[in-house]
Simulated assay, not measured.
Amino acid sequence: MGHKRNAFLPKSKRWRDIVFQISNYSIENNNISLIADNILENVKDRFKLIENDKGVNTTFKFLLLLSYSTRTQNPHNFLKENGIELSDNLTPLQITKSLRIWIDEKVDSKEYASFAKSAAIDAISYWYQKNEYSQSNLFEAKQNQFNVWEKASNGTGFCDLSRKYFSKFIEKYLKYFLEREASSNSSSVSERESLNKNLEKYVENISQHSFETSKITQSYTAGWYNKYVIKEFPSDKKIKEFISIAFNKLRAEFEREQKNG
């Protein structure tokens, strides 16, 4: 039997407090908790059975292929054999372009594909910037082009990359439903504009909350990668199973947060 968590992960700010802060007292206080819960409920609903979506699976597989490619003798050929075309001058810009092409050919839900693609692009950008790829060189090639991805070719590295992917996925959905709730609960255009301004003002709080929530996937990802990816690239079935468990962990974390306020 697996280990069952009873306590939710500590957060810098409670989700309800973030929603209250963004509302700027424009919404009745007794509605704040309801709105915060509605947002989490909507995100949980979107994450339910998400592993059945081709776009989400394809996006995560793309990140896996990049990381695993450095474990092969010829990363370029390995990626090409798996349908990812990259030129000899490997750059973040080129990778994101290839990602868009690769995903656009494998879409079920446009919404899922859009959020997954955007989260993956953010994760790729984060990975390059974190691993000594300066902002000024983001669109330039380097001699050892795959060195940056070699750092993601083990459980420790890949769980860091995937955590950023999941956190950005969460962040985009929280913002999406927060904007919808703000719009439906605003009594005037000026009130709606005020809420939108606050949403941008406190976006870092949403980002931080999302990153802290995504921690629930980190140790599981590291163990899964070391078990199923190190020696050979996993099957689509294995990837789908991973995505199912990872998003269920996120849904469970949202449920714990709802119960604990």
Rank of each mutant, 00 (worst) to 15 (best):
residue 185 N to Q: 11
residue 11 K to E: 01
residue 189 V to T: 11
residue 22 I to A: 06
residue 10 P to N: 15
residue 247 F to Y: 03
residue 142 K to H: 01
residue 210 S to W: 01
residue 226 N to L: 04
residue 256 R to K: 14
residue 11 K to W: 06
residue 232 E to A: 00
residue 64 L to M: 07
residue 105 E to V: 00
residue 198 N to D: 01
residue 158 F to I: 07
residue 189 V to P: 08
residue 168 K to V: 07
residue 214 S to W: 05
residue 31 N to R: 03
residue 204 E to F: 04
residue 117 K to V: 04
residue 258 Q to P: 01
residue 143 Q to N: 15
residue 96 T to S: 05
residue 59 T to Q: 00
residue 30 N to W: 06
residue 29 N to S: 12
residue 32 I to W: 03
residue 204 E to P: 00
residue 239 I to L: 00
residue 160 D to Y: 05
residue 236 D to E: 01
residue 132 E to K: 14
residue 129 Q to Y: 15
residue 104 D to N: 15
residue 168 K to E: 14
residue 111 E to Y: 12
residue 41 E to K: 06
residue 172 K to R: 08
residue 202 Y to L: 01
residue 238 K to G: 01
residue 121 I to K: 11
residue 23 S to A: 11
residue 124 I to G: 05
residue 18 I to T: 10
residue 233 F to I: 06
residue 236 D to K: 00
residue 259 K to M: 04
residue 208 Q to A: 11
residue 239 I to M: 09
residue 121 I to N: 09
residue 113 A to I: 08
residue 146 F to M: 06
residue 33 S to N: 03
residue 5 R to M: 14
residue 7 A to H: 15
residue 96 T to D: 05
residue 22 I to W: 00
residue 1 M to L: 03
residue 103 I to G: 03
residue 194 S to H: 14
residue 257 E to K: 14
residue 31 N to E: 01
residue 175 K to H: 05
residue 170 I to W: 05
residue 261 G to L: 15
residue 116 A to W: 06
residue 103 I to V: 10
residue 255 E to N: 12
residue 167 S to P: 05
residue 85 E to D: 15
residue 152 A to Y: 06
residue 66 L to I: 09
residue 85 E to M: 14
residue 167 S to V: 06
residue 230 I to Y: 14
residue 219 S to R: 04
residue 249 K to V: 13
residue 245 I to V: 12
